[in-house]
Amino acid sequence: MRAVRAQRGCGRRVRGRAAATGARTRCDPPVRVRAARAAHVRDDDVYLCDDDGLPAELGRLGGTGTALLADPALREIVLPILRNDYRLAERYRPTQGIRLRCPVTAMIGNVDPEVTGTEARRREEVTGAPFDLRVLPGDHFYLTPQRDAVVAEVVRRLVPAPAARTLGPSTP
């Protein structure tokens, strides 16, 4: 969605559909404390967690790779990447006044502790075109076990269905 907003901000026409997965919009209140997270960690401050806090956050969200972070060599490589990913997501603020003109599909996991259906539905506010929400089985990392369903949904939304052909009268 950021790329589509950037294109619109430059006056370019955007064709196709924007897809959003597993994240709240920045229309939501910026500071909310989750009950399962330490009280001093705000939703927009995860990137500031120490080197034990980031893996703990991944575990809270249902991440399966947290055991790999027990290896000090891998931890040294992976934690800066994770921290920068969180920083990018948490510090992004959309340009005000730019509404998308393309349809938007949001996809979330049905037991994602990070985003609710109500929060995901707020993405409808960013477009003047049709919006739909697809809820798939899984947690915040539903994309991994639901890969085939996600790809099928994206393809279904992007590739128009073939037009029905009418056949002329049959000839013997």
Rank of each mutant, 00 (worst) to 15 (best):
Val155Ser: 04
Arg13Leu: 10
Asp28Arg: 15
Asp28Tyr: 09
Asp43Glu: 13
Leu61Asp: 03
Ala163Ile: 04
Asp45Trp: 06
Arg122Met: 09
Gly168Val: 10
Arg42Phe: 04
Arg134Cys: 06
Val135Arg: 03
Arg26Leu: 06
Ala152Phe: 02
Pro94Cys: 08
Gly53Trp: 09
Arg34Lys: 14
Gly138Cys: 00
Thr144Val: 15
Arg34Ile: 02
Arg32Ser: 09
Pro162Met: 01
Leu48Pro: 01
Leu61Met: 15
Leu136Asn: 02
Glu119Gly: 03
Gly53Pro: 12
Gly53Glu: 04
Ala6Gly: 14
Glu57Leu: 08
Gly9Pro: 05
Asp112Thr: 00
Ala36Glu: 13
Phe141Lys: 04
Arg42Tyr: 03
Ile98Ser: 03
Gly97Asp: 05
Leu143Trp: 09
Thr118Glu: 15
Asp148Pro: 00
Arg15Met: 06
Arg2Asp: 04
Ala39Val: 14
Pro94Gln: 08
Ser170Pro: 09
Leu48Arg: 15
Leu54His: 09
Asp50Val: 05
Gly53Met: 06
Ile108Tyr: 02
Ala152Ile: 01
Leu133Lys: 10
Leu133Trp: 08
Glu76Val: 02
Ser170Gln: 11
Arg83Ile: 04
Leu48Asp: 02
Gly109Val: 01
Thr171Pro: 02
Val41Ser: 10
Arg121Trp: 06
Gly117Thr: 04
Ala129Cys: 11
Met107Ser: 03
Ala3Trp: 06
